[in-house]
């Protein structure tokens, strides 16, 4: 089982790859849209990337609730 920090680090790589955000900025308290400037299309790709990377299923109605990096990490921890 991956630790919270390991999941955050892997997610940070993904966010960097998709949206060019520096990995060190991708911290648990950061909002994707407001703090990291991730737009709606990049967010779709990040979630698709999470599904692949962590083997989780993120339904559309769930994705709306994943506003911060911490929300996404918690979802992955609970569902992988």
């Amino acid at each position: 089982m991956a630790t919270t920090e390991e999941i955050r680090a892997q997610l940070a790589e993904l966010v960097n790859e998709v949206a060019g955000v520096p990995v060190e900025d991708v911290q648990l308290d950061k909002s994707f849209v407001d703090d990291l400037d991730v737009d709606s299309l990049a967010m779709v790709e990040i979630l698709v990337g999470c599904e692949e990377k962590f083997g989780v299923n993120i339904p559309d109605e769930e994705s709306k609730n994943l506003k911060t990096v911490g929300d996404a990490v918690a979802y992955i921890e609970a569902h992988s």
Binding site: L41, V44, E52, D60
Partner: peptide, 10 residues
């Protein structure tokens, strides 16, 4: 649009 985008990029 988002459903199409998701399908196309995945």
């Amino acid at each position: 649009g988002q459903a199409v985008f998701k399908w196309a990029t995945g």
